[in-house]
Design a protein around this nucleic acid. Structure first.
Lengths: 261, 261
DNA sequence: CGTCTTTGTCCAATATACCGTACAGATGAT
DNA sequence: ATCATCTGTACGGTATATTGGACAAAGACG
């Protein structure tokens, strides 16, 4: 139903939080929207949204586009994002690695990270298979639904993990319930083994491989993944895992290395 | 002296504006800073900056990095920027075009836009010259200092332009004063001819070529530029201009075309 | 040891941001 | 014409965000 609900009801929301809620919402929708529509769909007061949208427009954070007063993410965000990318200079090497992975395996290769308390595909290289399996880039997916998810939270304590992941995210897309304790066990297994593989729980025909890309503190800053048809995945399991680990090793310090000085 | 001064003195600043002031400041500095340093350098109250920084950290807009409590732009900004880039899908074609330009001319080719009321280099491809001339990507440069600047404000009225460009930006890096009326004349000339070239006024050895990339409203949404040694630029003027115009034509609708639907 | 600077947290005062509500033009259906 | 919906704007009350200043821990320096 409602995409977002705040901590407590009946409280005034902080402008800053509302603003980023608007930005995230636009990102999720991936299209320009009228302020009115935004207000209705995120359940925020119209007057507040109008005021915030105007502020963001003046700052270049939002832009008019698509006519009829519709707004979408603005150029300033692109510049800020580019500065981030430049500082944590992983994307260039990342593309190379993904390309090599996809070439070697002919499967879909992904570079994934957490976006807040959701999983998201940052970069992807589709494989040479006749049918292709792919999550859209930038979409937010519940952590428990993914193999990478096990690795990306592995540095946290059990309690921390359960506080971090929204409870409803343990409800799988088919409606089944994933036992959090079972999930935690898989997290610990993934942490021990340094990878995680399983038959996807969001569909019935893919197998997923995930290995962590470590930051300087030894946490999984990101993951490299392969998404394969089940029989291919099982048949080539050892080879795919080896390739993934090689690839991850080549990225391992990159995500946190500043470019200069 | 002080990098930023608000409209009126002695007024309370809005959190949102302050927040983006912090983000812009970090981008300009291109390094992680402590909240204290930020407060001091942008002239904002320490307590406010601490509160805002914590808010931004919780939203993933800022991240701890570099130790000692230093913060820098966060992953969320990368995601938002990527969504912008995906929507206004110009960068892929842009890279191709820049590469071709640089190959054909062996000069430095740039893709430039406005960031607020400053000029900035968004993408760059360095030429094959033994010495390379380049502005750093993402740095903010006063509009009047650049050839592109003439094109990027050409859709505005004279009055509008003078209100838009901060007066101090007509002071050139050498200290000389650029007469705004002279600048406006060059803007109109650039608008008429559809390009602008000159011996750079920020150094004494380069020649700059700029042509506009038009958006759907017929405004210059961006520019393509060549930065060349003066003698080369003058010797190859016609050829370079022709190449640039071809390249710009191939991008002309791209900046505002949504990727899907 | 004292003194100064840098760092982060805490707190109360008040300027104001957020929000509910009212208003009005545009559009479209009946 | 009448009613309903969608759109953007305007305004006042009150909850609260912003802010200056106090406080303290942790160096740096002599």
């Amino acid at each position: 139903m409602d995409a977002v609900l705040d901590e407590a009801a009946g409280k005034r929301a902080r402008g800053l939080d509302r603003a980023f809620e608007i930005l995230d919402f636009l990102r999720q929708k991936r299209q320009a929207l009228k302020p009115n529509e935004i207000a209705a769909q995120i359940g925020a007061p119209r007057s507040s949204v109008y005021e915030l949208v105007n502020l963001l427009l003046r700052n270049g954070i939002l832009e008019f586009t698509g006519g009829e007063g519709r707004v979408y993410l603005g150029r300033k965000l692109y510049f800020l994002g580019a500065a981030y990318e430049n500082h944590f200079d992983f994307t260039r090497e990342c593309e190379t690695v993904l390309e090599r992975l996809a070439d070697e395996t002919r499967e879909t290769a992904q570079f994934c990270m957490l976006d807040g308390n959701k999983y998201t595909v940052v970069r992807m290289r589709e494989g040479a298979r006749p049918f292709r399996i792919s999550t859209d880039i930038g979409q937010s997916v519940p952590i428990p639904w993914t193999a990478s998810g096990r690795l990306l939270v592995a540095h946290r304590t059990d309690e921390d993990i359960l506080n971090f992941i929204p409870p409803q995210d343990f409800r799988l897309p088919g409606g089944e319930w994933l036992d959090p304790q079972h999930f935690l066990a898989e997290v610990r297994q993934a942490e021990r083994e340094g990878f995680f593989t399983f038959n996807s729980i969001v569909d019935s025909f893919t197998h997923c491989f995930a290995v962590p890309v470590m930051d300087e503190e030894g946490h999984a800053a990101a993951t490299l993944c392969l998404v394969t048809p089940r029989d291919d995945g099982l048949a080539n399991r050892d080879r795919y895992l080896a390739r993934l680990k090689e690839a991850a090793a080549s990225l391992n310090h990159a995500p946190t290395r500043p470019k200069r000085g």
